[in-house]
Amino acid sequence: MFKIMIIDDNKELQNEIGNVLITNEYEILKPRRFDNIPQIVKESKVDLILLDINLPYDDGFKICTEIRSFSKIPIIFITSRNTNIDELMGITLGGDDFITKPYNTQILLARINSLIKRAYPNNSNMNTIEYKDLKLNILSSTIEHDGKTEELTKNELKILHYLLINKGKIVSRVDIMDYLWDSSMFVNDNTLTVNITRIRNKIESIGLKDFIKTKRGQGYII
């Protein structure tokens, strides 16, 4: 799975973009400090950066220049500054794309997808997730462990994928149902219970027990 860093001091917008990216199967990183962004980029191993221009400490242009001194990671400027000079500076200093606010979500996703495909043409990490000896293959909708394979339904795939991208965190039942709703699927409380049970049974059938744990009154955690 590709990891995208959202560098924007507007927390509401950071969260909004982050939720869209998670729904579309990206992992995200949202820095809360802006005094040493290039160092955070070095340490985080992200695959793409969404970068605002107006930031505390250094502006986006300077940050882009510093990142370009050590990395060719794709950078998309997302900013309310919409003059030709701003766009020219962004591209000249090493940005790969320039999108002005307010932006169309689908256009933003299309630009991100296109840039990632160009930057990582031979990378298949967006198609599989591996965690605790379980391999989830998103393209074939299967899980694998120790040479054994089980097929997942569309709902099962979405639920397990959502739990995996939130690994180590408790995910509430409401969060899962909201996520499926955003993905144009609908499940009620009883259907979710049935799907979780089926996922657990399939994971256990390939040799992994207690992979999905229930936190009573809170939700599930992997």
Rank of each mutant, 00 (worst) to 15 (best):
1 M>G: 10
4 I>E: 03
5 M>W: 08
6 I>M: 05
7 I>Y: 06
7 I>G: 00
7 I>H: 10
8 D>G: 04
8 D>M: 12
9 D>K: 00
18 G>E: 02
18 G>H: 08
19 N>P: 09
22 I>Q: 03
28 I>D: 11
29 L>S: 12
29 L>K: 14
29 L>Y: 11
31 P>W: 10
34 F>I: 07
34 F>Y: 06
35 D>F: 03
36 N>G: 07
42 K>R: 12
44 S>P: 07
48 L>A: 06
48 L>R: 09
50 L>F: 08
52 D>S: 10
54 N>D: 13
55 L>Q: 02
59 D>Q: 05
61 F>T: 04
65 T>I: 08
65 T>L: 11
67 I>N: 13
67 I>D: 12
73 I>V: 09
74 P>Y: 02
75 I>S: 06
78 I>L: 05
79 T>H: 10
82 N>S: 06
83 T>I: 04
83 T>N: 05
87 E>D: 03
89 M>F: 13
89 M>C: 11
89 M>R: 05
90 G>N: 04
92 T>N: 07
97 D>H: 03
98 F>A: 01
100 T>Y: 12
103 Y>K: 01
104 N>G: 03
106 Q>K: 15
109 L>I: 12
114 S>F: 11
115 L>E: 04
118 R>Q: 15
118 R>I: 06
118 R>W: 14
120 Y>E: 02
130 E>N: 12
132 K>E: 00
134 L>R: 12
135 K>R: 06
136 L>K: 04
136 L>G: 02
138 I>Q: 03
139 L>G: 14
140 S>T: 13
141 S>I: 14
144 E>H: 00
147 G>Q: 08
147 G>K: 09
148 K>T: 04
149 T>E: 15
153 T>C: 05
153 T>N: 08
154 K>P: 15
156 E>L: 12
158 K>F: 10
160 L>F: 01
161 H>A: 01
161 H>D: 03
164 L>Q: 07
165 I>L: 11
165 I>K: 10
169 K>R: 14
169 K>Q: 06
172 S>I: 00
173 R>N: 11
178 D>G: 06
181 W>C: 03
183 S>I: 04
184 S>F: 05
185 M>G: 06
188 N>T: 04
189 D>R: 15
190 N>T: 05
194 V>G: 00
196 I>F: 07
199 I>S: 05
202 K>G: 06
204 E>T: 14
207 G>W: 14
209 K>V: 08
210 D>W: 13
211 F>R: 10
211 F>D: 09
214 T>W: 05
216 R>Q: 13
221 I>F: 10
222 I>K: 08
